[in-house]
Design a binder for these strands. Structure first.
Length: 773
DNA sequence: GGGCTGTACTG
DNA sequence: CAGTACA
DNA sequence: GCCC
């Protein structure tokens, strides 16, 4: 076994090596480094030592590893870990109390090779005005600015006790910030205001001369809008020279991440439409350069910049560089660390070679930081502990779970209450999702936006087939869905079950910025786009899609003309767009009706039931799932009629188009996967038939109703109780090896009744519509 | 440092 | 047997 | 990803 594993690993790395090259580059460049060539001829690539980049989805290291290792979660090499942890630290300061800042999460992050080795150290601490000493009395934000309202309620009183970050992390210390729009009525903006206050700044409502920054909600506003607004307010144009206009996001998040005040004139911080040349001389430098590469700084560009910088006369007062310079607070390197900050506001360029270096390293760092941002968010699921303990040892014994047990469980749960004191009233009954009725539903959920974004991350990981992250995200999402108050800080989030530090950080970022950078960065990555395209082909998974990419294929047409495909894949490609479409509930019904009526004419005692998301009440479905059964019929009988009569009949009538995967065994196969199409439609739909003898209907209903998380959860619960649940029934006395490997089949306990299976497992009944975990 | 559902079809 | 799919 |  070990040998096999080794072999696979080796093979995996060999394969990965190629694709990783791109991955590595891309991590720095964000995508646009030449993917094409890389993909096309990987062998042409010089052996870049690669920087192997875990963060690239394409080289989804984790995923592929998982696959290679047999679907086992594989951890990343420890080197990654340590690297990332360094970064993380820099961004988030270790022991701090306050909210965690942006994600520096980067587990997946990749070590960037040598040149940057020192970077993390630099980031580590920002010196901060140690001397400013506490001005005793009022905090800066109260002295200078206006106090925003509290975060929780919509019309709250002023938040006069905002907890500031430790001085060392107050990257916006003594800055005076004007927002645009400049009010705290919207919660996202109010949170941003709180954030800049925590970072040492003050928020002002009216225009004044000492304003240092204008921050906009990036998505909405343009440079001209802001100007118009300011002019109205009587702002002299000249002021612009000293006042930086930036997008809150990514500016503030990145400042937090790097623990220092970044150059606000970098292209990625500029408001849409802001004239680059317009800015200060200093700015110009940065802006022009960065504008080229827009969001993602690249190493090379910065070098270029450097050159340019040297040649030009204008100096750049880069804020960034100085800071970076001093890694040790104790020995400020000479000059400018603090200056940097000041220079930011104003004026003097301090130029130096250092600055240059700083720019470069900073660009690298930033790129790294962005690259490693965790895309995901997690959500629900949940096998949980407490239950396990109870029944763990096994045995079937207490099948029915006494209420008291539940209680116990609830107490054992991590620490539910924090944010949600009021809502759910009762503690979650267990960590098994199948135990908790869907609970809160929905639309009004205060965390809906967070959930939405996390869900996107989750889907992305799912596509990437990073099953464990997907799993974690889904569990976390479930948890969030159950909250009745908005989770706004990482601290709040981290206390909830299935939300760890990383997800908590992401949640905070989402709340603060209304999006997740990691998600944005990958969405546009061409390589990832191709991967996603290929993964969408029915019959193709990550392994196949990666091979296609490695072979240089970039389009579906490439696949049809050049790749060798399985029959399923051919159909998957031909009807790619069909299968990608959701099926309206009414059409699902129509397909079901077609089958039911055909069945009725063949043998009225047969029945067909539409399952899947349809049974859960979904408005639309990804495919059509139907159970066919007949009282007291054997599988052989079912199989015979369906395979020998029904399917041929419906095929000749034109309703069924083709099969994708069907039982080969003639007598006891129970599934048929294929494609159907309504007579008046041209859109082919995925259709799954499951043949079920009456005595297995309960288990089959349970299985085919799902959803998948619910199924996994309830099956895990069963296994923890020494039982086994599958689509045919619930079995007890299952003996498992040390790794839960099944050693015997167990004895059937129940298969006929869905409700009895719930009862036996001690799971409160849930209607199909409540099984959405 | 390992687990995270259990099964069935394809090639 | 690995890969993919199904809930 | 999280949890043990």
């Amino acid at each position: 076994m070990l040998d096999d594993a080794l072999r696979e690993k080796t093979a995996y790395f060999e394969q990965q090596e190629l694709s990783d090259k791109d991955g590595g580059d891309m991590s720095l460049g964000d995508s646009y480094l030449n993917i094409g060539p890389v993909l096309a001829d990987s062998e042409a690539m010089p052996p870049p030592k690669l920087v192997r980049k875990p963060s690239s989805f394409l080289g989804p290291t984790p995923k592929e590893l998982q696959m290679s290792f047999g679907a086992r979660g594989v951890k990343q090499p420890s080197s990654f870990r340590s690297e990332s942890s360094k970064l993380e630290r820099s961004a988030t300061a270790p022991g701090t109390t306050t909210t965690k800042s942006f994600p520096a999460t980067g587990l997946r992050q990749r070590p960037t090779s040598s040149p940057q080795a020192k970077v993390p150290e630099r980031l580590k601490r920002t010196t901060s005005l140690p001397d400013m000493k506490v001005k005793n009395e009022l905090p800066f934000y109260k002295r200078v600015g206006v106090i925003p309202r509290e975060l929780k309620k919509s019309n709250a009183k002023p938040a006069d006790n905002i907890k500031l970050e430790p001085e060392g992390r107050q990257v916006l210390r003594d800055k005076v910030v004007y927002f645009y729009p400049n009010n705290d009525t919207s919660m996202p903006r109010r949170m941003r205001i709180h954030k800049i206050i925590q970072l040492g700044a003050a928020w002002v409502r009216a225009w004044r001369e000492d304003i240092t920054h204008i921050m906009v909600d990036e998505s909405y506003h343009t440079y001209s809008q802001v100007l118009r607004h300011l002019n109205k307010a009587g702002l002299p144009c000249r002021e612009q020279r000293r006042i930086f206009l930036v997008k809150f996001d990514p500016y503030v998040p990145q400042c937090i991440q790097f623990g220092t005040l970044l150059d606000p004139s970098a292209g990625r911080f500029l408001v849409k439409g802001a004239p680059i040349s317009n800015r200060t001389a200093v700015d110009t430098d940065h802006a022009s350069q960065s504008s080229e590469s827009q969001g993602s700084l690249q190493v090379k560009p910065s070098l270029r910049q450097l050159t340019a910088h040297d040649s030009q006369t204008h100096s750049t007062p880069t804020e960034n560089s100085p800071q970076n310079v001093n890694s040790d607070p104790s020995h400020p390197p000479g000059s400018s660390q603090e200056i940097v900050k000041d220079s930011f506001i104003g004026d003097e360029p301090n130029e130096s070679t250092d600055a240059y270096n700083d720019d470069l390293s900073q660009a690298i760092q930033e790129t790294k930081a962005i690259a490693h941002l965790p895309l995901d968010e997690e959500e629900e699921e949940g096998p949980t502990s407490s239950i396990d303990h109870d029944s763990d040892s096994g045995t079937d014994d207490e099948i029915p779970e006494p209420p008291s047990k539940r209680l116990k469980l609830s107490t054992s749960t991590p620490a539910p209450p924090k944010g949600k004191s009021k809502g759910k009233g009762k503690a979650p009954s267990s960590t098994f999702q199948c135990m908790n009725p869907s609970g809160a539903a929905s639309s009004a959920n205060p965390n809906s936006r967070t959930i939405e974004i996390l869900d996107q991350m989750c889907k992305y990981y799912d596509q990437m087939q990073d099953q464990w992250r997907t799993f974690a995200y889904r569990k976390a999402i479930s948890t969030l869905r159950k909250q009745d108050t908005k989770i706004t800080t990482a601290k709040e989030a981290a206390v909830l079950p299935f939300i760890g530090q990383r997800l908590a950080d992401k949640i905070e970022e989402i709340v603060l910025t209304d999006r997740l950078r990691r998600l944005d960065s990958t969405r546009d990555d061409p390589t990832d786009q191709v991967l996603r395209l290929f993964l969408g082909v029915y019959g193709a998974g990550l392994a196949q899609a990666s091979k296609w990419i490695q072979a240089g294929y970039r389009t579906l047409d490439d696949l049809t003309t050049k790749a060798k495909l399985t029959s399923s894949q051919k159909i998957g490609i031909e009807h790619y767009s069909d299968f990608a479409q959701r099926i309206p509930r009414t059409e699902v019904e129509a397909h079901g009706t077609t089958i039911k009526s055909a069945l009725r004419t063949l043998d009225p005692t047969f029945s067909a039931t539409i399952m899947g998301s349809y049974r859960r009440g979904a408005k639309d479905s990804g495919d059509i799932d139907i159970i066919i059964t007949k009282p007291s019929a054997s599988i052989a009988q079912l199989h015979s009629l369906v395979f020998k009569t029904l399917i041929p009949s419906l095929t000749s009538s034109g309703f069924l188009k083709c099969k994708l995967a069907t039982s080969s065994r003639t007598d006891d196969g129970t599934k048929w996967h294929g494609v159907s199409c309504l007579p008046d439609s041209t859109t082919w739909r995925r259709l799954d038939l499951l043949l079920v003898p009456e005595e297995e209907m309960g288990a089959a209903l349970l299985y085919f109703t799902g959803n998948d998380i619910f199924n996994r959860s309830i099956r895990l619960l069963a296994s923890k109780k020494g039982m086994r649940l599958n689509q045919r029934g619930l079995y007890r006395d299952v003996v498992r090896g040390r790794n839960r490997e099944k050693l015997n089949e167990g004895t059937l306990v129940e298969g006929r009744s869905e409700r009895k299976i719930f009862e036996i497992l001690g799971v409160p009944w849930r209607e199909p519509g409540e099984r959405i975990c």
